[in-house]
Design a protein around this nucleic acid. Structure first.
Lengths: 195, 195
DNA sequence: GCATGATACGGACTGTTAGTCCGCTTGGCA
DNA sequence: TGCCAAGCGGACTAACAGTCCGTATCATGC
């Protein structure tokens, strides 16, 4: 029976400082790929060794920062009230989830870009636990509407419509407003679930 | 009136050698991000200076390799016979284009991954001339079917369904066959253009 | 053929990055 | 207060994209 050691106070303090510094740097930098691990360590006021001891590698640090941002959304989906929570009819729930993901990504564009770009060649978007989780949920919801046949594929397509780089392109490159995007998404989801 | 100088014979030879070596390395490496410029130079039997003189940077080299692979498809679309060429009714043409893109990406998975990953943080998929071109064409075709309102958005969504990393995930991660993917895509395009 | 200048070559070099290592420090417990 | 596991930091390594410049090669005028 291994006794689980508490994290030491200084370690906890540093972990928090690193997450905050990274969040801030990713949020303010134009191109998240340009934020180096040294930058983050310096901004957090810790040594590089500390940073890597705590987070292992770049991809994992980014995923942790992202997890913090996404926790409220995930909780809403898993156990919140409608329209995100489990008591929602499948169709509205799919629409609400896609909309909520779009909102989070639009509001945290830089960070989400960092995740999808720099999540590392190791994993990419599709390897992450978050993707797998939300894909599974959507697949099941879609299956109740359209049958299991192509539900998995449809779920991938739905998620492809809210990829961070696509959202960035249509906002920054084409000047679409957030509300126009959400309205297109809403239409698209509705139409996709009509059969 | 500037006289356009011919490319010197040795330069032409080296350009060809580099393109072939790069194509081969990207095609055989599991993770195209791991193919370095030094590797390519060595495989081509040229110095690094030559490689960079000819291609400027990594992203551009990848785009050139990709352009070679894509030339036949582009030509078919621009001036070939139906179902890809301009004499095709819009609806079938959209379906044929998406299918053809999927086939090329499925057949050249590694290279396409290299392009989408490593095209550089500078551009990404959405910055490339190829993306812009095919998006514009699809947008116009979709507009003739559904009106201009959301045609641009729909065109992005159609292209998002044939992104190289998604295709890789469903083939390698989920074991979908190429024909199953193409059939899903076909259904999806048909349904998306129904209104 | 051969001289000559533009063109191209190649690999040593630079700058920057992710990630490692290890001697020193500190927090927590008896 | 003394002990030591846990944690710290920054010098270090390895690998990479991209640059530079002395040397070699090609094409052209004679």
């Amino acid at each position: 029976m291994a006794v689980v050691r508490e994290e030491r106070a200084d370690a906890a303090r540093n972990r928090k400082a690193i997450l905050e510094a990274a969040d801030d740097l990713f949020a303010t930098s134009d191109s998240p790929g340009e934020v180096s691990m040294d930058d983050i360590a310096r901004a957090a006021g810790v040594g590089k060794g500390t940073l890597f001891r705590r987070f292992g590698d770049r991809g994992n640090l980014i995923r942790q920062v992202y997890a913090v941002r996404l926790a409220p959304l995930r909780e809403q989906i898993e156990s919140g009230p409608p329209p995100l929570g489990p008591d929602t009819p499948p169709r509205e729930r799919v629409a609400a989830i896609i909309d909520a993901i779009a909102v989070v990504k639009l509001d945290n564009a830089h960070l989400m870009l960092a995740l999808e770009e720099g999540g590392g060649p190791t994993s990419g978007v599709y390897g992450s636990a978050d993707y797998v989780g939300v894909h599974g949920l959507l697949r099941d919801l879609v299956a109740t509407e359209l049958g299991v046949g192509r539900a998995g594929w449809i779920a991938h397509v739905l998620l492809a419509t809210v990829r961070a780089d696509l959202l960035r392109h249509v906002t920054e490159g084409e000047g679409m407003s957030h509300s126009a995007i959400r309205s297109c998404l809403r239409d698209f989801v509705d139409h996709t679930l009509d059969h």
